[in-house]
Amino acid sequence: MPAVIEVRNLHKSYGDTVAVDDVSFTVQEGEIFGILGPNGAGKTTTVECVEGLRRPDRGEISVLGLDPQRDRAELTEALGVQLQDGALPDRLKVGEALALYSSFYRAPADWRALMDELGLASKSSTMYGKLSGGQKQRLSIALALIGNPRVAVLDELTTGLDPQARRDTWQLIEDVRSRGVTIVLVTHFMEEAERLCDRIAVIDTGRVVVVDTPAGLTERVQTEQRIRFQPSVPFDDALLTGLPDVTGVVHRGDVVVVTGNDNALNAVTSVLARNNIVAQRLRVEQASLEDAFVALTGRRPETEQHANQGRAARGQARTGRK
């Protein structure tokens, strides 16, 4: 598959602050490519350079063979952008916004059909300021798609949405991809990245830590299994700690947590069976994308609240930077 976006050794500083240190990645045609990372990792600055909104200090970017700075006019026809913050006048009506934006492009999508498909038809004459968070988000997706772009960059798409709206939006993104649109998705939600992305670039402190599929990422950290159960009767830990496949046994109230390698589950269950101990509520925990993220970046992923605080701080920083 041909590369749609190529970023090589991107570097961008604001004064003394290095936002993006050295970022390289390639996005293939037709894939959903995730950019995942903690707050301030340089995700947004990276995609802003790809969109041509910011001029990189160093490095090369090619989008559909175009240079985001030099070929801006061409790029804007082919690259749909959804920005983090709301970006329409409050009193502009939904239908007006779509009609207006469609007039900007050479070969726009049919805005009425798009409005229908995004479930906004009944909101056609509602003013932007009166829309709910989910509706605003759907409108901004519609505006990102209105020029019939080949690539769409979606930044923090579902932040601030309730779980149902978030799931609807995910479905929507999958539908968009099935139209053949390549998607770059900036996110800090593990679940979102895991559900949607074909490949993920984990970015931390301005560098790409790794690029892999969600499954590939979790495999990297799958060194240990965690087995939890409630034993039917108390037993001596030595029963389990003596097993070569087991690395640790911990009691948490009634629950026993055993860690070990891939064979640990087999070994533990047979020992328990031999001793007539029933393992109630047996659960085996495998590494999640979140574990992979923590292992790769050494931090917990943001909660949504933190993300919003971070965004506010970043907004201020951006104003200051002007």
Binding site: E96, S103, A107, D110, A113, N148
Partner: peptide, 25 residues
């Protein structure tokens, strides 16, 4: 919500967008 739109057959009047922008403003 399924997205199946293809290019619109409709031609846009003003390529510049200025007219529609002015009316909107």
């Amino acid at each position: 919500m399924s997205v199946t739109t293809t290019a619109a057959p409709r031609a846009t009047g003003s390529r510049s967008g200025l007219g529609r922008l002015a009316v909107t403003e």
